[in-house]
Write a protein that binds this DNA or RNA. Structure first.
Lengths: 196, 196
DNA sequence: GCGCCGAATGTCAATAGTGACAAAAGACCG
DNA sequence: CGGTCTTTTGTCACTATTGACATTCGGCGC
């Protein structure tokens, strides 16, 4: 039973854990911080910690969840007739990034975390992202063929993350490039596979 | 340091662990079997168990690794000029399935395992599968644009797994249907996104 | 305020998974 | 065979994670 409900009380606890963890992580590193320390700092028992987060490392990715929710909503709010690819583009970049916080966490992630974990998380995010697109497409085209809808959603997600993947391999990274890569990726797959 | 090397000795140990685990899993269920029991049955220490398998649940997916290796080789062995989609199709179904064993393990997986784990594993397999396709495409078209190659590989993988996904949701499942779904998925994405 | 109910937390006791270092098993060479 | 280097295991200790069950906290109706 990983994720806990959302009463006022539990939300306060969760936030306390988040803060405590961030402080420790920044001060002494992720792997050098034990879940027990975090729980103690937040003034709760270790067990309670695990009622709010699936794992210690989950804390470093907590923000992605919020982003996903945002994306779902942004997608649903796009005008009805808009081409899918446009909607996705728009929804992705509608998120109000808190650059400071994101940067800080990103540094922790890339600096101290086992690359394996990051990859694993990327996969999870892509999968959730595709689910969101799938819901969206399904809602807009209730009559469409199930395979067609599924293929479309998964490929849109695949394209976006392919863009991200290429971007990550670049030396000089900036947001504008990322947007361009994602757009190009989406456009090319819309027209069919670019390489055969 | 998860995966261990491959000397004669370690391979015997690994095999012993596999057998011991299968017996226990079948007899008393996956969650009711502890890693310690498996190690004891195989006559090794618990620590050694974890030197051969990342986790207890890994044992249930050990066969997929072999399948992936096979796929890579089958893909590489396809004639040079063949269209990508054809190569992938052919390579997927070239694997010599041991129906008995696969069925037995599949029953364990779907019966007792937390669905979350299965989904997670599916994602991992898809990701590895895409990596294989990526390597293949990259090898065949060394001069092609990196983004184009990446998009193509990820989308081919996405299409195949979309087919699988739809297949899994069906009541009546048979191999022929799966093949058809995968082919349809690949063909549709080759021509461009089926839904917009 | 009192008693009741469900949500949130605490406690206890396992099992899961890993890092560090020592010991044993093989392979190889002279 | 003895010496030596590499691979594989064992041992120990510690953190991570989870299930089961007891306890406490906050509303809610009386």
């Amino acid at each position: 039973m990983p994720r806990a409900p959302q009463t006022v009380r539990s939300e306060r606890t969760r936030e306390a854990l988040r803060r405590a963890a961030l402080v420790r992580f920044l001060a002494q590193g992720v792997e050098q911080t034990s879940a027990e320390q975090i729980a103690a700092d937040a003034g709760v028992s270790l067990r309670t910690f695990y009622r709010h987060f699936n794992s210690k490392h989950d804390l470093l990715f907590a923000d992605y969840d919020a982003g996903l929710q945002w994306f779902r909503k942004a997608l649903a709010d796009r005008p009805a007739g808009e081409p899918l690819v446009e909607s996705v583009q728009a929804a992705i970049f509608a998120f109000p990034y808190d650059v400071e916080a994101v940067t800080q966490i990103a540094r922790l992630r890339s600096g101290e975390l086992d690359p394996t974990r990051i990859v694993q998380h990327m996969r999870e995010v892509q999968s959730d992202f595709a689910d969101a697109v799938l819901d969206h497409v399904g809602r807009r085209h209730p009559d469409a063929d199930e395979l067609a809808v599924t293929v479309t959603a998964r490929c849109v997600a695949a394209a976006v993350f392919a863009g991200m993947e290429v971007w990550m391999r670049q030396d000089d990274r900036n947001l504008a490039d990322l947007a361009t890569l994602c757009r190009d990726a989406l456009e090319s797959v819309t027209a069919g596979l670019p390489v055969s």
